[in-house]
Design a protein around this nucleic acid. Structure first.
Length: 318
DNA sequence: GATTTAACCTGGACGC
DNA sequence: TGCGTCCAGGTTAAAT
């Protein structure tokens, strides 16, 4: 499922193939994918049609296309897209076969690539489980004056509906010191905090487990007991795993396809904890021990951990 | 106000 | 074969 690295791959694809083009037509095949656009389908179509995409920005797992003002004023609206668990954004020819779970089609103005070859004219939002969606949001100034997120020419603006989302680990404006202060104030467990998009964004269940394994923390470590070296270690681990995943996702950049393969994906072979229940912990094995990765129920989902590398703290907080 | 839980949603895996 | 149940999980509204 798409987490930060996967969404960043999508952002780069959109920045390359959609930025600068005008959305000439919109077709909504399933209104449920627009349920977060409270003003309804017709309003969405009316406001998107005719707008030009000036930039593509990402904060955590939230992605938005900045739309220009048809009257020539400053940009003030963003076309938001969240991929949820199974969302995909695909660039295709209009006559390409319709995907089974195609939800929204955007027809783009004609454009050429660097070699003068016409680019496909359709951006498709495909989503099997409908946890994702698209909606329009007003842009508002960022409180810190930094760019709203990661983008080519990202402005110090953020969509209202993403303003509560913290900056992610790949964002130059992310502050480790502020993160440390805020996580210490929480009265919860470490994994809950990592999954809280208001504290640090972009980390989902998979990379939370990977970062905890790499940094040797149990998911129930109370956040108010973390010292500076502890938060530094967890942030370093999370940044490292996501950076490597992003590099792995980057292999498909050359295809004319905004890569989101919603399923297990290209990084699966490098996972150390997630999905490896009953299999040996590779770090323990390299140190001559035989410990099996364990799956535990956590927040109505799963946590994978090595019981030796990540012992449960006595004051565990789930 | 802070924290936790339930609901949203589909399709594949599994047991009977 | 067919049916029912469980599981996957990002976000947010509702509950605690």
């Amino acid at each position: 499922m798409p987490e930060l690295p996967e969404v960043e791959v999508v952002r780069r694809g959109l920045a390359r193939w959609v930025a600068g083009r005008t959305i000439e037509a919109v077709e909504v095949l399933d209104a449920r994918s627009l349920r977060r656009h409270v003003d309804g389908v017709e309003d969405f179509i009316g406001n998107v049609t005719g707008s030009r995409v000036t930039d593509v920005v990402r904060r955590g797992k939230f992605l938005w296309m900045v739309l220009d003002d048809p009257d020539g004023g400053p940009a003030r609206v963003a076309l938001m897209a969240h991929l949820g668990m199974s969302g995909q954004l695909l660039i295709e020819e209009p006559d390409a076969p319709r995907e089974k779970h195609l939800k929204v089609r955007l027809t783009l103005s004609a454009a050429l690539d660097e070699e003068g070859v016409p680019l496909p004219a359709e951006l498709r939002f495909v989503d099997q489980r409908i946890f994702g969606g698209m909606f329009l949001a007003d842009l508002e100034p960022t409180p810190d004056g930094h760019p709203g997120g990661l983008g080519r020419e990202s402005l110090p603006l953020v969509p209202h509906q993403a303003a509560h989302i913290a900056r992610d680990l790949l964002d130059p404006a992310f502050s480790p010191e502020s993160f440390h202060r805020r996580i210490r104030e929480r009265r919860t467990g470490l994994k809950r905090a990592l999954l809280d998009q208001g504290l640090v964004s972009g980390i989902g269940n998979i990379y939370a487990d990977e970062a905890l394994w790499a940094a040797r923390f149990h998911y129930a470590r109370p956040t108010d007991t973390l010292r500076r070296p502890d938060t530094a270690r967890i942030l370093e681990a999370a940044t490292d795993v996501m950076t490597r995943a992003l590099a792995a996702g980057g292999t498909s950049f050359d295809a004319l396809y905004v890569n989101v393969n919603g399923a297990s994906g290209y990084f699966a072979r490098d996972l150390q904890a997630y999905g490896r229940a009953g299999r040996p912990c590779r770090r323990c094995a390299s140190e001559g021990r035989e410990t099996l990765v364990r799956r535990e129920s956590f927040m109505n989902r799963s946590s994978y951990l090595c019981p030796h590398c990540q012992p449960r703290p006595r004051n565990a907080r789930v």
